[in-house]
Design a protein around this nucleic acid. Structure first.
Lengths: 219, 219
DNA sequence: TAAAATTTTTAGACTTGTCTAAAAATCAGT
DNA sequence: ACTGATTTTTAGACAAGTCTAAAAATTTTA
């Protein structure tokens, strides 16, 4: 079994990796955990021995499959408890975090099963953040701004930020409607505009501002 | 704030003191906590510095008022969580303990308030163990077998174990009916039979078997 | 009431997770 | 490609909680 501290490191690594999908640096973890880089290095060695992370000195870390499973289990518990506190115990969204942070470490499979049942098996918490199932699988993806993805990422359009008519009309003319597949071919360095394909055919350029207003989930 | 470990020691001391109401020994705590006497001594020094216990070397410990308040708060949380698990999450009584043992350390006043409200402010858990209120006050007493008390203990009769007619008729003849005050005058060593008074007048002897079938709460 | 048995405490060591300060490795700018 | 800045790691120390072995105090027993 992993200690509370180990669980918190795993979760921090998962979150840092989630946003940029790159190898996570020692300093980034130190900042996230409100601790010092030296302490992080010590812990990384331990997590490496336990085969929870891939780690090479000076090279940052990523989670192993085992580490990711561990992370998803903690996140599952955290998000289910947040739902519970809000829906059943009259917590406001800004009040839940600290308590869920404690509750997520409680060890009991039956408790989490029953909690899930009690909440009617929610697929996402009210933030739109997906709740992994008991096997650690995410059934829905949190949507992100298209502008945050990288070259060669493949995604499905799921929403827009700007709902103005001119914008929506522009999108329709480009074939950018809900459900279509968007692949990023290139991101130009000088203005961060994107070359994309829609449904593997239509190739076009969109500005970074446009990309910021398109919500997608990774495929 | 106290650590999990400190809280567990406080709870252990409370429980050990509850049954016999005497100064609690180092070895008794060590056994209860599944640890070694040397570790207990170390912790006792810490709890003494924090003014949670009265402690003199080699003389055992009792809780201070502050320590007792701390204990009652943990017990309140423990028993509320047990109720919750049984009533809302389909736990059996033998399944709740380990989980409640973890949940009792969660720090959040609002959480416990809402939990209490959610359960409709229960006064006792289904074991009959009383749940302290938010101020640490016990509104009902757990009833025990009269045979477990000591000389000079004073109590009120609250129930019986054996409900057979002959037994109840015998009790009535002795004046042993619900609500009457029983004081233990003497416990004979050779057969553990008891000399008692009922309502400070009638003095009589009852066998230990009879005493085992009379439920009382301490006054 | 003195010796024997038991309980409790002390002393010193180990583990986990943390820190500071200094050394080593990597990265950035020219 | 070199130099300086930054990041990461190492080394050594500390606090909490635990342990074993030995010493000290208390209790039991004869």
């Amino acid at each position: 079994m992993n200690s509370f501290t180990e669980e918190n490191y795993i979760k921090a690594i998962y979150k840092l990796n989630e946003s940029d999908n790159a190898s996570v640096t020692t300093n980034a973890i130190a900042e996230q955990m409100h601790t010092k880089a030296a302490s992080v290095t010590d812990m990384l060695k331990k997590l490496f021995v336990k085969k929870l992370i891939h780690y090479q000195k000076y090279r940052g870390v990523t989670l192993t499959v085992k580490g990711e499973k561990t992370a998803l289990n903690i996140i599952r518990k955290h998000r289910l408890w947040e739902m519970f506190l809000v829906e059943k115990f009259n917590f406001k969204w800004d009040e839940v975090h600290d308590v869920a942070e404690q509750l997520e470490h409680i060890q009991s499979d039956k408790l989490i099963e029953e909690l899930d049942k009690f909440l009617n098996y929610p697929k996402a918490d009210p933030h739109g953040d997906p709740i992994p199932d008991a096997k650690g699988k995410l059934h829905i993806q949190k949507s992100k701004m298209l502008s945050l993805l990288n070259v060669n990422d493949n995604c499905i359009m799921t929403g827009v930020v700007d709902h103005s008519t001119p914008f929506l009309q522009y999108l329709e003319r480009c074939g950018l409607v809900l459900g279509n597949e968007i692949k990023i071919k290139e991101i130009l360095t000088f203005d961060k505009s994107l070359q994309i394909t829609v449904n593997k055919k239509n190739s076009l350029f969109i500005s970074n501002d446009v990309a910021k207003n398109i919500l997608v989930t990774l495929k």
